[in-house]
Computed example of a mutant assay.
Amino acid sequence: MPRYDFRCRACGSTFEVSRPMASSDDPAVCPEGHADTVKLLTTVAMTGSASAPRPSGGCCGGGCCS
């Protein structure tokens, strides 16, 4: 289940809420009980590299198709 970050405008605390994507825009109440919150934009940092696996042999990978 996705997690969304929120910040409370009343007390300034930042907190996470786990909920289905269909409910991602629903309001959230901060742990202190304040209702004036805003959903934060979160980013994902990815490191390393990935590539598609290279074919190894077989008709389409071995070059026998013409």
Rank of each mutant, 00 (worst) to 15 (best):
M1H: 06
P2I: 02
R3Q: 11
R3Y: 07
Y4S: 01
Y4K: 01
D5Y: 03
F6M: 02
F6N: 03
F6T: 03
F6E: 04
C8N: 10
C8T: 12
C8K: 08
R9C: 06
A10C: 05
A10D: 15
A10Q: 13
C11P: 03
C11M: 08
G12Y: 02
T14S: 15
F15N: 00
F15K: 00
F15T: 01
F15A: 00
E16H: 13
E16P: 02
S18E: 15
S18W: 03
R19M: 10
R19P: 01
P20T: 07
P20Y: 05
P20C: 03
P20F: 06
M21L: 14
M21I: 11
M21H: 08
M21A: 13
M21P: 03
A22G: 00
A22T: 14
S23K: 13
S23E: 12
S23Q: 11
S24N: 03
S24W: 08
D25F: 10
D26I: 01
D26W: 05
P27N: 04
P27V: 09
P27L: 05
P27Y: 06
P27E: 05
A28E: 01
V29T: 15
V29N: 00
V29W: 00
C30P: 07
E32R: 15
E32I: 02
E32T: 09
E32A: 15
G33P: 07
G33I: 03
G33N: 02
G33S: 03
H34D: 10
H34G: 10
H34P: 07
A35I: 07
A35H: 11
A35C: 07
D36F: 10
T37E: 02
V38Y: 01
V38D: 10
K39Q: 13
K39R: 15
K39E: 02
K39D: 00
L40C: 14
L40N: 09
L41S: 15
L41T: 13
T42M: 13
T42S: 14
T43L: 09
V44M: 09
V44S: 05
A45F: 08
A45E: 15
A45V: 13
M46Y: 01
M46G: 02
T47F: 14
T47K: 13
T47L: 09
G48C: 03
G48M: 02
S49T: 14
S49G: 08
A50P: 00
A50N: 06
S51V: 08
S51W: 10
A52W: 12
P53V: 11
P53T: 12
R54L: 14
P55F: 04
P55L: 14
P55H: 08
S56G: 07
G57Y: 02
G57R: 06
G58F: 10
G58I: 12
C59G: 11
C59M: 15
C60E: 06
C60L: 12
C60P: 02
G61V: 11
G61N: 09
G62N: 08
G62Q: 08
G62L: 08
G62P: 05
G63K: 04
C64A: 14
C64I: 08
C64E: 12
C65D: 06
